[in-house]
Design a protein around this nucleic acid. Structure first.
Length: 212
DNA sequence: TATAATGTTTGAAC
DNA sequence: AGTTCAAACATTAT
């Protein structure tokens, strides 16, 4: 990277892409990564970029590099915050996995690139869907609502994050009581991912198995 | 102060 | 061969 010029910054889901003329650097902040612009921070940066008008450092992150650009390596229609986002594509991917749990598909970066555990919990609460629903059991119009709300919430998330007020707006994540019905929220480690899941057994619909 | 968690990859074990 | 699982990375709020 030394002496080379950055052509462009891009993002795909949680990936931050630094594009050079003949190669690409991918930063992923994982759980604990951070970046600083024109600021010092304790510790050695994994990647440090210096420009004519400032500098940019990345800490405690995953770094990958490859020859060539970023374009053909990513499904841009899967990025929930990208202009190229395609809800119809997401629906097709969901239809291909009727047995998958909602709490798993909302973390699947191939379907909802950029969605994470907080988004999963908040979106399911907002649209009143139980995390243990299988995709196939959820009515199509409700599935469309889920897909739409995942993108919507991502923009709310970003806005609140910038305002340092994200946590204040959590309705389910880390909460113990349902603000809609006042009953206790359930905290469980669900799905293939066994990630922390907060939900209301009363307000979030669990569709019955066909015939069951 | 100990614990758990906004995430993902890797490789061993089954 | 396909899956499942623990380990690894490392910071910070609670």
């Amino acid at each position: 990277m030394e002496g080379r010029e950055v052509i462009e910054f891009k993002t795909w889901g949680k990936h931050f892409l630094i594009c050079f003329e003949s190669f690409t650097v991918r930063i992923h902040l994982m759980l604990f990564g951070t970046y600083r612009i024109n600021e010092q921070k304790a510790g050695v940066p994994r990647v440090s970029l210096t420009f004519d008008n400032g500098y940019l450092n990345f800490y405690n992150c995953s770094v990958k590099m490859w020859e060539g650009g970023a374009g053909d390596r990513y499904d841009w229609t899967a990025d929930i915050m990208n202009d190229a986002w395609d809800a119809g594509n997401a629906e097709k991917k969901l239809q291909a996995r009727p047995g998958a749990l909602l709490c798993d598909v909302l973390l699947d970066q191939h379907i909802f690139a950029g969605s994470g555990n907080i988004i999963k919990n908040e979106v399911l609460y907002r649209v009143r869907l139980h995390p243990l629903n299988t995709v196939g059991r959820v009515p199509p119009e409700k599935r469309a609502e889920l897909i739409e709300e995942t993108r919507n919430y991502a923009f709310d998330f970003l806005r609140w994050k910038k305002e340092y007020s994200l946590k204040k707006h959590w309705l389910a994540h880390t909460k113990t009581v349902c603000q809609r019905c006042n009953l206790p929220l359930v905290k469980a480690y669900l799905g293939k991912t066994r990630r922390r899941t907060f939900y209301c057994n009363n307000c979030q619909v669990l569709y019955e198995e066909p015939g069951g």
